[in-house]
C-alpha cells in the first residue's frame, strides 16, 4: 500500500529522468565506442584516436589545468572571504551574503561578457595598465588561458563563498571558545580547529567548482575562443560545426567519466575525513 503510493508519486520524475536522461546519455556513451572489428583497438578505437591526437590531448590537458587553477584560486579566495563573512555582525553578514548571491543570479554569458569588455585591447584593464605606465601599448589578454581562468574564478567565487560560509557556520562556536580558553590565539585556532573541521566542506566546494569549470562552455568560448579550446567548446565544435557525432560522443563520454570519477572519489574522501560522522 505504502509502496504503491510512493511509486505512484515518484513515477513521473522517475520515468522522465530514465527516458530523457539516462537512456539518451547511455546512447551517447554507446555511440562513443567503435565496432569490434575496427582498427587495432577494437571497440575502444575512437578513444585511442582521441589520445593519439596531440591537439585533442592538449584540449583535455588544458581543461584539466584551467579547471584545477580555477578550483585552487576560488578555494583560497573563497575561504578567506567566507571566514570574514562568517565572523561579521549579523546585519553585515546578511548584506555580504546578498552581495555574493547577486552575481550568482546573473547569467554566465553576462558575467563572461563583462570580462570580454574589461580585458579587451581598449578595455579598462589595458587603460589602467597604460595610464599607470606599467605597459607602453595594449597587452593582448583575451584568448589566453589566463583570461579564461580569471573569468571563471570570477564566476565561481560567489558559489564558493556561500558554500564555505555555511561550512564555517556549522563548526560549533563552543569548539572555538574551548580552543581559545586553552590558550590558542586566532591563528592557532584557525589552523588547528577551523581548517581541519572545514576540510569536508572544502572538498564539496572544490568538487562543485572543478566539475562546473571542467564542463563549462560559455566562458571558454567567449574568452578562450578557438585558440584556447576546452572540452566544452570542443564538444560543441565537433557536434555543431563538424557534425562529427561519434567524435563528439567520445568527448562527451570522457567528460562524463572525469566528472563521475571526481565526484565519487572526492565525496568518499570527504566522508572519510569527516570527524563529526563515525
Amino acid at each position: 500500500m505504502k509502496r504503491l503510493a510512493g511509486w505512484m508519486l515518484a513515477s513521473p520524475a522517475t520515468l522522465a529522468i530514465t527516458f530523457l536522461l539516462v537512456i539518451p546519455v547511455a546512447i551517447t556513451v554507446g555511440l562513443s565506442f567503435g565496432s569490434p572489428g575496427q582498427g587495432d583497438w577494437g571497440i575502444v578505437q575512437p578513444y585511442a584516436d582521441f589520445f593519439a591526437s596531440g591537439f585533442r590531448r592538449n584540449v583535455l590537458w588544458r581543461t584539466f589545468t584551467v579547471a584545477g587553477w580555477v578550483t585552487v584560486i576560488s578555494l583560497a579566495a573563497g575561504l578567506a572571504t567566507a571566514y570574514v563573512v562568517a565572523r561579521c555582525p549579523p546585519w553585515m553578514k546578511s548584506t555580504l551574503i546578498v552581495l555574493a548571491v547577486f552575481p550568482l543570479l546573473t547569467g554566465v554569458v553576462v558575467r563572461s561578457f563583462a570580462w570580454l569588455v574589461l580585458l579587451g585591447r581598449e578595455g579598462m584593464v589595458n587603460q589602467i595598465l597604460q595610464a599607470t605606465g606599467l605597459t607602453d601599448g595594449p597587452v593582448a589578454m583575451l584568448y589566453t588561458p589566463g583570461a579564461v581562468i580569471v573569468a571563471m574564478v570570477y564566476i565561481f567565487v560567489p558559489l564558493m563563498v556561500l558554500v564555505l560560509v555555511g561550512v564555517l557556520e556549522n563548526i560549533p562556536e563552543d569548539l572555538l571558545q574551548a580552543s581559545s580558553s586553552l590558550g590558542a590565539g586566532p591563528v592557532a585556532s584557525f589552523f588547528q580547529i577551523t581548517l581541519p573541521l572545514a576540510v569536508p566542506g572544502l572538498i564539496v566546494g572544490a568538487v562543485l567548482v572543478f566539475t562546473a569549470s571542467f564542463t563549462s562552455y560559455a566562458t571558454p568560448h567567449l574568452l578562450g575562443g578557438t585558440r584556447q579550446m576546452m572540452m566544452g567548446t570542443f564538444l560543441q565544435q565537433r557536434a555543431l560545426v563538424a557534425f562529427d557525432w561519434p567524435g563528439a560522443a567520445v568527448v562527451a563520454a570522457i567528460m562524463l567519466a572525469v566528472i563521475v570519477a571526481t565526484v565519487l572519489v572526492m565525496t568518499r574522501l570527504a566522508r572519510r575525513l569527516n570527524p563529526m560522522a563515525t
Binding site: A13, T14, I17, T18, L20, L21, V22, I23, P24, V25, I27, T28, L31, T211, F214, T215, Y217, G232, L235, Q236, A239, W245, A248, A249, A252, M255, L256, I259, V260, V263
Partner: peptide
C-alpha cells in the same frame, strides 16, 4: 537517480538530447 541531471554535465545532457 533524481540528482543525476546535476551530476551529468549539462553539455553532455544537451548533446544527448539533441541526438535522441
Amino acid at each position: 537517480l533524481f540528482v543525476l541531471p546535476i551530476l551529468v554535465p549539462e553539455i553532455v545532457i544537451g548533446f544527448s538530447l539533441l541526438r535522441s
